[in-house]
């Protein structure tokens, strides 16, 4: 019965320092500066900052399974994380009366990425994204899934609100895409780096790599993103079929 208060009580470094709190505020500010430099500023105006908009993305950031933060026993999965991260945008979306087809187009690529990730990791849990698969088809699927996720960010972030809530949302979406990269780097670094050092060194590298990749994605013309997404989607289907056929 005391498990839940105990876990929440031990989570204060996550809430105050990392990956939520101070880290989230500074990193989201820097990320927005970087994205603005890459031509990726949100087109929608920033709503006034309210706890109602800030808390859901902040909750996801706080619960992200990022080393070297203290483990939290109640992790999130992709659907919950995405709903919480997209909350500020959804409020704006509902107010704008956009056609549902546009909303579907925005989420088509992230959902293809989710499909690849689910087939690769066998589940929807965020912690599962950190486990770099041993089998080659699953590895390829996870890599393609992460790449498609990062590729989908420009469209999602441009068509979303700015301001602090939008920045936290952008950071959350970027960090979800950085998790498979972190898993891959950790698997590679495990051979030549002590686990404790890897816990401190690898996450910043993965986050930096994901930020650079998303910055590059912002420079790709939207039409070309569509083509790359279509090819990626076909690759996901082919790899998923192959992976399913190799399961005993």
């Amino acid at each position: 019965m005391g498990e839940l208060p105990g876990a929440l009580g031990l989570a204060w470094p996550r809430v105050i320092l990392y990956p939520g709190g101070l880290f989230a505020l500074v990193a989201s500010y820097l990320l927005m500066r970087w994205l603005a430099a890459c031509g990726g500023e949100p087109a929608w105006p920033a709503p006034p900052a309210t706890p109602l908009d800030l808390v859901p993305p902040l909750a996801v950031l706080t619960l992200l399974p990022l080393a070297p933060a203290r483990p939290f026993p109640f992790g999130l999965d992709l659907p919950v994380a995405l709903v919480l991260l997209e909350w500020p945008r959804f409020r704006a979306l509902a107010a704008r009366d956009r056609a549902p087809a546009e909303a579907l187009r925005d989420y088509a690529l992230p959902l293809v990425a989710v499909l690849a990730i689910v087939v690769a990791t066998g589940g929807l849990e965020l912690a599962g994204l950190l486990r770099w698969p041993e089998a080659a088809p699953q590895r390829a699927l996870l890599a393609v899934g992460a790449a498609l996720w990062l590729l989908s960010l420009p469209r999602l972030l441009r068509a979303g609100p700015g301001g602090p809530a939008g920045a936290l949302r952008a950071l959350g979406l970027l960090l979800v895409g950085a998790l498979p990269l972190l898993g891959a780097l950790a698997a590679g670094a495990g051979q030549w780096l002590p686990a404790e050092s890897a816990g401190w060194l690898v996450p910043p590298l993965a986050i930096l790599g994901a930020a650079l990749a998303s910055g590059a994605a912002f420079r790709i013309p939207e039409r070309r993103v569509g083509w790359i997404g279509a090819v990626g989607g076909a690759a996901v289907l082919a790899l998923a079929t192959y992976a399913a056929s190799t399961v005993r």
Partner: peptide, 14 residues
């Protein structure tokens, strides 16, 4: 486990 919804933990944290 393939999906997790920590409802009370999430409410407490929020």
């Amino acid at each position: 486990p393939v999906a997790t919804l920590p409802s009370l933990a999430l409410v407490g944290l929020m």
